[in-house]
Design a binder for these strands. Structure first.
Lengths: 256, 256
DNA sequence: CATTTTGTTCAACAATATTGAACTAAGACG
DNA sequence: CGTCTTAGTTCAATATTGTTGAACAAAATG
């Protein structure tokens, strides 16, 4: 541990406990005590504190993550002024194409999945709102990545490892820089099975005053995302939708 | 303050700070210091801790609630085994009726709004997933309330005040007990502008092994929810949907 | 460039988190 | 039934850690 990390250790431990409950499901006092290597009495105090604040809920003898988190998470979501517009447009995209439409936001150098809807023939993913991944391995992530400032791009490349998800994932920094350049020229990003095998997608950034606020994407099975459809039809649909959102945003912004 | 409240004070304060950020939007160190009456250096340590755990995000000089909450909130949601079934059925209800369809869950004696979809002519509400309200003032709340154990009902009535939301809200315990009895006999609950003026709704509980797990509801403007439609048509639709969910649940449960 | 404001660092001190031991409650078992 | 076992709870001493102002750095303001 570093000398001065300037953090509250008890709070760190509280979050560690919450994480443990998320990963391992509901637990009793004794289980937590053993698994986290803390005395029972300490666990009790922690759970009392979490329960008092509704972040953890007692169900008989077991404690679980509470719905209180949802309230704060939803606040963070709706706090982004783009969100309402993006949400309805994503739903429209899923409806008209039948594929999986989604929206990602950048936070702390990661892509966060904030909304998605499945069209009637969409592929199924196990993505849940709030899930995070590297910016380098999805179309949505790359669409955002490409439009960050040059310094921020280099900062993120140097700080985060370009983790390999599939054989197609771009893990070489130089290759990534070239890819981002192409995305800026093209106006949209592709993923050719770079995060999930068998899944391809197309994403476009949403820019407001030159700043990227999020990206929207369409994803589908590799066999449907080929040829003309993949290289021009789907990109046009996605970019069109992104454009409409941008227009609504600038309109509503000036209309204040 | 009580003698021994057996809670971690620093953690309580962390949550207080998060709550402040939710209520008042992004804040700087100095603002928080003034508004929460804490020294700047203390605020700093708190924000460092929250930021390190991604629950708060620094945006220039201001700190905001982070999307990390979303991940835990979503976990809590999907942790309920009913949720996937309920979600699709609620969407179906909104589609076929054009009204506002929603699902509520009980937690800590409160109704928590966990999912909702607006049909094409639905009334607009400012409800956000994760919002909480008393069990006594909505159709969804009462539908759940009525099917809790008798002891739990009395416990909740005695511990929580039956807060008045509109002139129609039931605030008298005896009146509420009678209402709950009728709901049990009828199989569904009504709200006649008891939480929001001009809004009526119909809700049905979803029971699994005799335990109520959540409720689903349809809400609409008072002028559309009248006569035959309000007393039999909508209730039949809602109860039908609830039944289908119950069947799917018992089926998938035994199928394990 | 001077001035004010805001953010950050640090080490001493006070506060509080931590702990085991003692206690109670609930189940298991014969 | 009563004993044994296991799980949950309480509490007061101690050591750890949270808290703080003061001093510094950085940025914004005039």
């Amino acid at each position: 541990m570093a000398q001065h990390d300037n953090t509250l250790k008890s709070v760190d431990k509280v979050f560690k406990m919450v994480e443990h409950l998320k990963t391992n499901g509901g637990k009793t006092v004794t289980e937590l005590s053993q698994e986290l290597d803390m005395p029972k009495s300490t666990v009790q105090v922690y759970l009392n504190t979490l329960a008092k604040n509704k972040f953890v809920v007692q169900n008989g003898a077991t404690y679980q993550i509470g719905l209180q988190f949802l309230q704060y998470g939803m606040y963070a979501l709706w706090n982004e002024p783009v969100f309402p517009n993006v949400k309805s447009k994503v739903e429209e995209l899923a409806d008209t194409t039948g594929e999986l439409a989604a929206c990602f936001v950048e936070e702390l150098g990661e892509a966060v999945y904030v909304y998605g809807t499945e069209g009637n023939r969409a592929i199924r993913t196990d993505l849940t709102m709030g899930d995070r991944s590297g910016l380098h391995c999805t179309a949505s992530g790359k669409a955002i990545f490409a439009h960050l400032s040059q310094e921020r791009i280099e900062e993120i490349i140097s700080q985060r490892s370009l983790e390999r998800k599939t054989p197609q994932t771009i893990t070489d920094p130089d290759e990534l820089r070239e890819e981002l350049k192409q995305i800026r020229e093209r106006g949209h990003a592709y993923s050719k099975e770079e995060s999930v095998e068998g899944m391809r997608s197309v994403a476009a950034p949403i820019l407001l005053d030159g700043e990227v606020v999020c990206s929207i994407s369409l994803a589908g099975p590799a066999n449907r995302f080929v040829g003309e459809r993949f290289t021009s039809e789907v990109p046009d649909i996605v970019k069109g939708a992104a454009n409409e959102i941008e227009l609504k945003l600038t309109y509503s912004e000036s209309g204040l």
